[in-house]
Amino acid sequence: MNTGLISMAAYLPANKLEDKMAKALPEFLKNQTLLPEEYIKSIEDTGCLPGSVENNYDGWESQPWFDAWLKSLAPKKQADPFQGTSERRRVPNDPASVTESIHPHPMLPSDAEVIAASMAILRSGMNPDDIDLVLAHSQVPDRPLPQNVSLVQHKLGLKNAGAYSVDTCCSSFVSMIEVAVGMVKSGIKKNVLIVSSYIDSHVNDKSTHFSVDTGDGAAAGIVSSCEMGYLSSHSSSHGDRHDGIVFESRLPLLYKGLHTSPDRRQLVTTFFNRDACKEIAINAEKDMSFVVSRALEKANMTTENVDFFVTHQPVAWAGEAWRKAVGISEDKFYESFKKYGNIATAAAATNFTEALEKGMIKPEDMVLVASSGAGENHIAVMHQVSKALIENMKRFN
Rank of each mutant, 00 (worst) to 15 (best):
T269P: 00
D167T: 12
R241L: 14
I199R: 05
I131Q: 03
P146V: 10
V381F: 04
L49C: 03
G4E: 08
S211H: 01
V326H: 08
E27M: 14
D216F: 02
A116F: 02
K76Y: 06
M393S: 12
S233Q: 00
G59S: 12
L251W: 03
D365Q: 11
W60N: 03
S150C: 13
Y164R: 01
T3L: 02
V369P: 04
G217D: 01
F173A: 10
G47K: 01
W65K: 04
H209Y: 12
W69P: 06
S118T: 05
D200I: 06
G359H: 08
K362D: 07
K338L: 07
V315I: 12
L389V: 08
D287T: 11
T168K: 11
H259L: 09
L25M: 07
A284L: 11
S171A: 15
M21G: 06
I280K: 14
L25E: 10
A96N: 14
Q83A: 11
S186H: 11
D142N: 14
D19W: 00
D132V: 14
L12Y: 06
P50S: 09
Q139D: 13
P314M: 09
Q153L: 09
A321F: 07
K30R: 12
T345S: 15
K332D: 04
P106A: 09
T3F: 08
S196M: 00
K23L: 10
Q313N: 15
H383M: 03
K189F: 12
A295Q: 01
E357A: 13
K159Q: 11
E178F: 03
R89Q: 01
H105T: 14
I379A: 00
D307R: 00
K76N: 07
A79S: 05
A374M: 14
E285M: 15
K358D: 13
K339R: 04
D45E: 15
C48G: 00
N392K: 06
